[in-house]
Write a protein that binds this DNA or RNA. Structure first.
Lengths: 360, 360
DNA sequence: GAGGCGTGCGCTATAGGCAAC
DNA sequence: CGTTGCCTATAGCGCACGCCT
């Protein structure tokens, strides 16, 4: 082995190659090069899979890298290439929202997005943002990520306005839940899902079906669900009826209040289609408290397929979007935006989950 | 405007300073330096808040940076400093687990960890890992993160073994849910919480209290909960009774089976303390199916405080850990490990959530 | 005290070199 | 005397920090 003191002046890292256990420096591609008897650039290209490097050399380099426990310093690689291989994922929540009471649908979507990104060899940089003074999306500018996926509650208007501006100014950005129509978005097949839910209630023999929704909600998807319901009702010669929920409460409380109003109105009804599961669960609690039997007297179907619906009494029928597809569509669309390629898929397929709350 | 072809040879970035709108290159600290009339190193120091730069100069630099929409390239900064300001968060799940049926407790913990890291000016690189052939934790080696927080289900033994090895070999690593005792961990105050739950049941008049748990479970926290329960029973002159759950099912199914066994055994009981909410909900379903009234005939308390417990019938009493504290303790401990400082806080405080399932 | 100069973090990409056909 | 196959040399990516003036 060469004299260390001499070599270390020019190439301080070769000391590491001499004895990995005692090294004081990080192992670099220079050490691997010395170990494998090739140049540093050959190491870089061998490990990157460049076909210009012969198989024999690649194997030698790989063995040397393994022996020295070498791993590419991604910061240096990213600085050089200008690409990060990372997607930022921002979860928009309400200011001061507790993570326990957070919408489980968005958690599942987050998991699905991270998994989809991972399958496409991308890291995910995740942040939960709620407070208006702590909004931050300049990941591309800081070269921390190549683009941005924003998901979460439509209720936090300042947050969505912020990310809307960001998207307008050229950031690579795809979202789920934005009240802005002109951002790049992915959504559930809300019309189709709502039709499924309504058909299901009709098939079960319910006729006076009311929909809990609101045309003024920031959550566009809710109104799409009403539209699907209304179309289906009209197609069956029935009159759609809206039980409007009010702004400014939790989803569950919105469902509770809508149900209370509906009952107080005195107008007869024998089923409710709620535009999301949390409102459906709120309504279910009111029905139970009022002694109205579900599903015997009133049928109930929600939307989102959250897990809590499995534990309610009776278990809540719902419409569930394909979470895996949702994550993949969000990631694929963002990667397309980054690569400046077109990508038209926008609607996530849904399926009906018939459970106890809608069968009599 | 200067002749670009000339300038670009020596200082390719000054072209950007000349006209930000038409720039072909990234805006760098050199551009900001030119704009502010200082050197690049002064820009770096000014923006980093180095007190050696005068207020007047800092203001000029900040104005120039804002004008050019300059942001530090974190890759370059990290390459230079060797620190990433990033924590990797690995969520261990079962292989092929669906994100919808994922333990909500772990989602809440994830959110809490990300928020705590953010408050401490750290990014969080999140990944969900389940499949044994896709385990990956070499974030420090790749200089993607300064350390690693691992949370999730104790059930995935190969995953925990992998991260255990990683921790043993010197990686900065703190975990929640590991079956290995010799990793750096944070846990709930399981003994205290179990005592609270048991006291609460006793106060409500229940006497024949059985605990659903197992001394062989990989989830150490479950047995700690049994121990807390047993201590409290003994202290009150009562005999602790174990309803052992079996391995190899979902938590809910484990709870179901334990409840079925308990009922079949014929031994009288008037309350159940389950070592987690999901098992409690499984048991609750069995009790309902068997026509056993909760809380009138049998009281029930779980552990974890998951949201689904609010929607069950009756709502599930539980013991809830302080999620915000949990996230902060995990992050603080990891930061201490990274900085090679001692940190002794390990137990997350809990509180009782008395709900309908335990009051008669 | 305030700020400039020079260097190198570790990597990738381009151009270039040197055999062998 | 090209051409091909395989590798080396060199030049930065953009920043922060030690050492100067």
């Amino acid at each position: 082995m060469a004299d260390e003191s001499d070599i270390s002046i020019k190439t301080p890292f070769s000391a590491a190659a001499a004895d990995p256990a005692k090294r004081r420096y990080r192992v670099t591609s220079f050490d691997v090069a010395a170990e494998a008897g090739v140049s540093q650039s050959t190491v870089s290209r061998a490990l990157a899979g460049d076909p210009v490097v012969s198989e024999a050399t690649r194997a030698r380099v790989a063995a040397a890298a393994a022996k020295l426990n070498y791993h590419v310093d991604e910061n240096a690689a990213r600085l050089r290439t200008g690409k990060t291989g990372t997607l930022a994922v921002v979860v928009v929540c309400r200011p001061d929202e507790e993570f326990k009471s957070f919408n489980p649908f968005h958690y599942a979507l987050l998991g699905s997005v991270c998994a989809a990104a991972s399958r496409r060899r991308h890291e995910t940089l995740v942040s939960f943002q709620g407070a208006p003074d702590r909004l931050w999306g300049l990941y591309q500018e800081q070269r921390k990520a190549d683009g941005l996926i924003v998901i979460g509650t439509s209720e936090n208007r300042p947050a969505w306005d912020y990310f809307h501006t960001l998207g307008q100014s050229g950031a690579h950005l795809v979202c789920w839940g934005s009240p802005h129509e002109d951002l790049d978005w992915i959504r559930s097949d809300n019309h189709g899902g709502a039709r499924m839910a309504t058909e299901h209630l009709l098939d079960s023999g319910y006729r006076d079906i009311v929909c809990i929704a609101s045309e003024t909600s920031a959550q566009r998807q809710f109104w799409e669900r009403y539209e699907g319901y209304a179309e289906c009702m009209v197609a069956n010669g029935l009159k759609p009826r809206l039980a409007r929920f009010e702004e400014g409460h939790t989803r569950e409380e919105q469902g509770r209040r809508a149900a209370v109003q509906l009952i107080r109105s005195g107008e007869p009804f024998d089923a409710i289609f709620a535009c999301c599961d949390e409102m459906a669960l709120g309504a279910l609690n009111v029905l139970r408290e009022q002694g109205i039997a579900v599903p015997e007297q009133v049928g109930l179907v929600g939307f989102d397929g959250i897990k809590a619906g499995m534990h309610s009494a009776p278990p809540l029928s719902s419409v569930e979007p394909d979470f895996q597809a949702a994550g993949e569509m969000l990631v694929d669309r963002l990667l397309s935006v980054i690569a400046d390629k077109p990508n038209e898929k926008q609607r996530v397929p849904v399926r009906l989950l018939p459970r106890g709350s809608s069968r009599r």
